[in-house]
Design a protein around this nucleic acid. Structure first.
Lengths: 313, 313
DNA sequence: CCGATTAATACTCATATTGAGTATTAATCT
DNA sequence: AGATTAATACTCAATATGAGTATTAATCGG
């Protein structure tokens, strides 16, 4: 049995109607993190308590993501292990973001940031992101060409798969695979923290340690999960319109959804019910308001709740 | 940052044509486990190397399962954290099971054991297990009746959901939920290790620490995964018949599969190809032999590969 | 050599799900 | 009044799924 330094890292996600955001520290360069204390009851319970106490947001859904071990540390220093969690929270009730680090009351200023700031290429639904993606793919291409020719085929195939090129279709769940290919190509500036900025709109904002990798894991997990578990509702306010629900799915998945089919599926899952009220915020025909039927989910422990994400054309 | 004792725990699964088996130590009472050493490169890589060096089996598929923290230890002692992995291996090339602990060359005798020895109620396809399941449900019922009446409704509902009673259908993926309900009811003798034996055919064999919980997590993960990733092939030998493949799925899932539909789906996934040979081991019409097309899987990183598991009637 | 056994294989059929589309209606905003 | 915003109502074809029946091809035990 060996002693290692163990820390918890949390990816706290909120959706404010506009874009999914994550709680960050250090001017957006790290995720909330803190030590695993020996007096904590269970990992899950203590993390939930810490988050709720410190940030004031109720954690709707909390799940373990992955346990990362860092690469070999300098000798003499203990090994570092990070146990990461994904937490979904509802917008509205949270404290101002400052000092919202769940692990450290006197921590550095915290802020909720658009997760696409870190992964601009993941926002496939956003046409204005397209040029940046083009630039990134160009650089990836350049890098491949600089490798030894016998690797070209394999690397190009991998590029096509993960970025949905040349006949392959875009798979929104491959967030981590895309990040790792770019990392291999030296296109995400984690290693050389010096040149942050510059073209962050192409390569995304960098983070300390392996926090951007953890964030990629979180996004991938959430995108996969909304297809078969009703977790998207954990990001919605008490009452919401179907259009708002659709936008949440679209912004999380980074792609468009077929409206009529989306409604059809949501309707026949029977997981939501009308409140009777209407919303006339958008300035069109008023939209009916719905609420999530929490009781039904209790009944069906594992209700398949796939969401109809539009295929690539 | 705090120092905790950190260990690795591996659930090594093999399918010998008869039943899924897991590698166990200490006369079946624990899973292979060992310290996280500071000289290991990455968790995944070092675990793979350790398993292959020690047991002689090639690990086909390795994935992290979950990181468990034990309950509060006696004061003064450091906290224990276990990072658990699921490893799928092919039968045939492994060394005799003795001393097959991947973490400890001089470890206790090891053995491959039927995983249903630990979870008899999970084998729904086996008619001779039915009486034991009946007995177990009877005891669960007795326990519920001994609780305070205002909990009856909730507990009975939970029982019906996880065991597929009273209109609910059996969900083979709820392995952990079933174990935890039985644990709560005091029906799995982890806590009182004294009375092992007795009715192990009803409550299953016990394990030390939380190893049976880890095993439950592994079974649940594998059952879920064979529905959408072609991991079942990691348990098959190089060549196999469609019937053998079906049996592997059935034994892992613990339930029957509709033969014609199974073949239809497997065929149109295009993940296997005929070898040209036939097997006449079973003594009937000879069955064609197939092999897994590894190259295709490389191409389709995420090929949906659902398997048609028969609905409960 | 015959019939039981074992399994592969070939079809059918109804129902459900999915992806994509058109058309219409109901409100607000300028 | 007409543009805008969104909800709603349908249609249609293509697949996927669950459950069957019927037939064929081999081995094995006597």
């Amino acid at each position: 049995m060996s002693l290692v330094q163990t820390e918890l890292v949390a990816v706290l996600v909120v959706f404010n109607g506009d874009t999914p955001r994550v709680l960050t520290l250090e001017d957006g360069r790290s995720l909330p993190n803190g030590p695993l204390r020996t007096d904590d009851r269970s990992l899950q319970a203590s993390l939930r308590a810490a988050v709720e106490r410190q940030t004031g947001v109720a954690v709707g859904h909390l799940e373990q993501l992955y346990t990362f071990a860092d690469h070999l540390p300098a000798d003499g220093e203990p090994r570092r292990v990070a146990i990461s969690y994904l937490a979904l929270t509802r917008v509205g009730a949270e404290r101002p973001a400052e000092h919202a680090n769940p692990f450290d009351e006197a921590g550095s200023p915290a802020a909720w940031r658009d997760w696409y700031d870190y992964f601009p290429w993941e926002d496939q639904a956003c046409p204005r992101a397209a040029p940046a993606v083009g630039a990134l793919l160009q650089r990836l291409d350049d890098w491949i060409t600089r490798q030894s020719p016998e690797r070209w085929e394999e690397l190009r195939q991998r590029r096509d798969q993960v970025f949905g090129l040349n006949g392959e279709s875009w798979n929104d769940e491959l967030v981590l695979q895309r990040y790792e290919l770019l990392y291999e190509a030296g296109l995400v500036p984690e290693a050389q923290m010096a040149d942050i900025g510059g073209d962050a709109c192409v390569t995304g904002l960098a983070m300390r340690h392996d926090h951007r990798r953890i964030l990629a894991t979180a996004i991938a997990r959430l995108r996969a999960k909304i297809r078969y578990r009703p977790v998207i509702y954990e990001l919605m306010p008490d009452q919401f319109t179907l259009f708002a629900l659709q936008q949440a799915v679209e912004r999380v998945a980074g792609r468009h959804v077929h409206k009529q089919n989306f409604r059809r599926q949501v309707a026949h899952q029977g997981l939501i019910e009308e409140t009777g009220d209407e919303s006339r915020e958008a300035g069109g025909r008023p939209a009916r308001l719905y609420r999530f039927r929490r009781s039904v989910v209790m009944e069906r422990v594992v209700a398949g709740s796939k969401l109809p994400i539009v295929r690539a054309r």
